[in-house]
Amino acid sequence: MAVADFLLRPLIALGAFALGMLAGIGRLAIFALTGVRAALTPPWYPARLLEQMGLIGWFSLPVVGLTALFTGAALAQQIYVGGQRFSAESTVPAVTVIAIVRELGPVLAGLMVAGRVSSAIAAELATMRVTEQLDAMVTLRTDPWSYLIAPRLVASTLMLPILVLVANIIGVLGGYALSVGRLGFNGAAYLATTRRYLESDDIVSSLVKAAVFGFCLALAGCYHGFRSGGGAAGVGRATTNAVVSAFILILLFNLAITVLVFGA
């Protein structure tokens, strides 16, 4: 009896963990659907949407731009060094543009914006929850789903593709600058090769990824902020959980989209 108990305990713990995780995914999915429904049905708040587009899009430009610039340059250097081992230094422009547009542009922009925006959304909504502002809004006959959550989800989904487009361009330019300035590439030839290897599918998949990541990072912020409780500590927890969830969602969907689009 005692032995059976001893053997069962890890299984019970494992089962509880799996059930807890499934319940969490279910709650997040229901939250996402409720948010999408609020975004698709009136009332709409265009002023809130514009405000969020500014906060999420415009103010993320510096951090996204810098990340792309440095990563693009470092990538070119690595490909050059790696390529030397089998005399393939000339692949730098082609590999750089494909790596940036397909993977690094959307993923790095998504992660950087998640660090900035998911945490900010979670902290703001959690504070509103703790100070009863969300309850107050309901009593003033305004639906927080329409007023707070829908504008954030939509703004983030719309702005991320634009940010990623910028990140892609700056990332390629970073690689170009390092290759021409330090590695002795010919500028015109570099850009011509970049153009030749860049396909429209790459750009489309890059922007689709960006939109999905944008939705995910706003969703993680809204979900943890809206459902928080337990005072100042709860606000802190919501913020941390929002960033971690956003990162995991972004990396998970990146893998899924990559396998779906390029693995077939």
């Binding site: 809004m137 006959r141 007023y147």
Partner: peptide
């Protein structure tokens, strides 16, 4: 109409937008 314990004013909005929130519903 409810007066909340901590006031629960929306700190993102000026006072006059807070006062008229029930009438405009955020518009």
């Amino acid at each position: 109409g409810m007066l909340f314990q901590g006031g629960a004013l929306f700190d993102s909005l000026p006072v006059w937008r807070n006062v008229t929130f029930a009438l405009t519903q955020g518009k």
